[in-house]
């Protein structure tokens, strides 16, 4: 009787399991500050600028290994940062396309809210935030209908097929938050990689 719900549960669980392989913890050596997402297997991690408090920080991989990361680039206005860790063979997240998102679509956010590791919250994409709230400089942020808390920042926002469509960035209410569109991060990283 509850087969549809059961199947949805299984699918969500498997999406979470897969996405967690690309979710790292970013800390400053004294505690965790937020999340990050493995963008490329060769050690490239994307996160929010506000998560990276110093030029050298610690990245904890999903398997527990702690590595020192180097800050490759940051853009405080867009609240984005790129880190590099000296390792290969990481599980990079599959990238999606934020331009084709439609309000109502299912989304999942992963991160470490209040220090709890690898937490997933589910909801829908509400629509574009026209920056009425003036939270960030970037126009057209993704408004999501799911709870985000401190520690969620830098983690991936994924769609129903596990593709990254945004970077969780701010909470705007109990059950609503904002994410930076993955397409903005793509442009940012292209610039960052071009300059090194």
């Amino acid at each position: 009787m509850f087969s549809a719900i059961h199947q949805v549960n299984e699918e969500i669980a498997s999406l979470v399991k897969q996405a967690r392989l690309s979710l790292v913890i970013i800390g400053d050596g004294h505690g965790s500050c937020g999340g990050g997402t493995v963008w490329h297997p060769d050690g490239l991690v994307v996160t929010n600028s506000h998560v990276v408090r110093s030029k050298r920080c610690e990245v904890t991989l999903p398997d527990g290994r702690i590595l020192t990361a180097r800050l490759l680039a940051r853009d405080e206005k867009q609240d984005l940062a790129a880190l590099v860790v000296d390792i290969e063979g990481l599980d990079a997240i599959e990238l999606g396309e934020s331009a084709s998102l439609e309000p109502g679509q299912f989304v999942l956010a992963l991160g470490h809210p209040r220090g709890l590791k690898g937490v997933a919250t589910a909801g829908i994409y509400m629509g574009t935030e026209e920056n009425r709230l003036r939270v960030l400089f970037t126009e057209n942020l993704l408004a999501v209908n799911l709870p985000l808390r401190p520690g969620n920042s830098g983690g991936p926002l994924i769609d129903s097929e596990g593709r990254m469509i945004g970077i969780n960035t701010a909470m705007t209410g109990h059950n609503t938050g904002l994410a930076i569109p993955v397409n903005v991060a793509k442009v940012f990283l292209k610039k960052a990689l071009g300059s090194c």
């Binding site: 199947q7 949805v8 699918e11 969500i12 679509q105």
Partner: peptide
């Protein structure tokens, strides 16, 4: 297609309409 993706597209279609 997964049930979740179907559900997701259905919700988006309702919102659009």
């Amino acid at each position: 297609m997964s049930v979740l993706t179907d559900l997701s597209s259905d919700l988006a279609a309702v919102v659009e309409s």
